[in-house]
Amino acid sequence: MTGVDDAPRPEPVRRVLFLPAELWPRILMPILIGALSLGAWEWAVRANEVPVYILPPPSVIWAALLRDWPSLSVSLGITLQITFAALIVAAAAGLALAVLFAQSKWVELSLFPYAVVLQVTPIVAIAPLIIIWVDDIRLALLICAWIVAFFPILSNTTLGLNSVDHNLVDLFRLYRATRFQTLIFLRLPAAMPYFLSGLRISGGLALIGAIVAEFVAGTGGRASGLAYRILEAGYQLQIPRMFAALFLICLTGIAIFLALGLVQHLALRRWHESAMRKEG
């Protein structure tokens, strides 16, 4: 048989300083906007002589961040630990339960409503109970963060496991694949993009869950994550320190979002549309 000559040729990607050229505006433009806003903030506070305990300028916040870094960094570490532990447990439990759902319609029918209940109950409403029931405050915070992070992973993965091309399912049946083979070689890989985008949503939610629960625990709790620092600084009217802690929380959220986006890109780049680099 003749060979084929209709092979598409891959186009080389233009790179500037190791990154694809079209990526640079996506990095530089937000940074530019951020810098302009900070400048305007600094100028407005100084020009209007706003007192520091109402709205501190960025320079003062930065100074507070540097001065209080020893205590703030410890709190950051604790918040990160709780967030990541919750995210990992949510990912594992969400994936496992979704696989269980895919194996048995009955299990899905009976359990899914409870997952929804877990999802729609406001975390601030059940956090006090959990904090009372669970002795270890860190474990209580972890459970709160887990409850918030769990649902997107479960529902996305369930959707992914069920939205396999039915012709591929037929193909596996034709070759007498076992349930296990169909799960491993077909359903799980097909659900991968769904799972990863669920994970990306849950990353941010886990952080929010951890922070909110710590607020509920209040200063009475013996935890000392970033939320505790904000409460503490608020009582002491240390407004720059409050902002510094807030800044760290934002930074953490952004970092989690970017990191999980990178995971998503690396895992799917070879085959999935969502990870394809846009041409041009």
Binding site: D165, L171, L174, F185, P189
Partner: peptide, 24 residues
């Protein structure tokens, strides 16, 4: 069986796709 669409596993190379029935 050959479907109207190629119906390949997008996460597998041409070789793994062609080898799928034997893998099963």
């Amino acid at each position: 069986f050959v479907f109207q669409e190629p119906t390949l596993l997008p996460w597998s190379s041409a070789l793994s796709n062609a080898a799928l029935p034997l893998k099963l």
